[in-house]
Design a protein around this nucleic acid. Sequence first.
DNA 1: ATATTCAATGCAAATAATTTACATTTGCAT
DNA 2: ATGCAAATGTAAATTATTTGCATTGAATAT
Lengths: 139, 139
Amino acid sequence: MINNTLKSANLKQTKKRILILSVLEAASTPITAEEIAELTSKDIKMSISTIYRALNALADKNVIIKALHQDGKTYYEINNHTHTHSLLCTLCNERIPIEACPLESLENHLVSETGYTITGHNLEFFGICPKCAAKKAKS
Amino acid sequence: MINNTLKSANLKQTKKRILILSVLEAASTPITAEEIAELTSKDIKMSISTIYRALNALADKNVIIKALHQDGKTYYEINNHTHTHSLLCTLCNERIPIEACPLESLENHLVSETGYTITGHNLEFFGICPKCAAKKAKS
DNA sequence: ATATTCAATGCAAATAATTTACATTTGCAT
DNA sequence: ATGCAAATGTAAATTATTTGCATTGAATAT
């Protein structure tokens, strides 16, 4: 639970960070700092820099995952230490998680070929979901 | 050649755009607007907004590929209509192209599963190259 | 409980990449 | 050559994010 999360990351337990974490845990997809500000605003008012600083601290400790998306914004999500990718509709931004990751075997191949230590990868699919495709066909 | 590229994209042939395209063709990796400014500065002086506008126009016409990387900058490269990915060293930014793309089969699977029209995907590997690993071990 | 200390916070200003408004110039079809 | 739409320069605007500095608050020792 959140109570231990902050402590074991050597971060002080403040109401704001607990709230940020609970919003992140409630979210079913990665969200932006702006969205966190919006979602927390009813409970606590908090400066946007506090949110950014908390998110960076949590990402440094690997409690959350920080990723720059193609819209130019940075998205944050709880690090559940499992490995998933996404399929994103470029029109409505619906996101479908992809269970399979076919990349481990390729990674192993790259390691032996290049000598790199591979620390991660980034995979997203882009497309148009059936709903948007139908809407577009009409217009 | 460049001469036809601009014309067939319905873009006017200006010295600046021709120079931008030749720099992109000479580059062996995706480069940023800033780097293009640097590389063209000896030949023609040109406003950075001109570069951005030219790059956006060319990307709209699919002459070049525009992609936001994890350093927060947008990189541009000639669209040779082949499909490659990269392995990037997070320390020195060395980039190794990856020939194989294991994703087509996954794409087909996703199409039948979700009904999406898939328009593209984005894949990058991150790691540390042998040189940087050695340097880091010393320090 | 109290004091102490360093991390966390608010606020405003700074950054940095990219875009834009507007006036001027230039390519290119006629 | 002429005219019009597209391209360009300059400066200012935008937008997401970071930072400096003064203040507050959490955790630890007393």
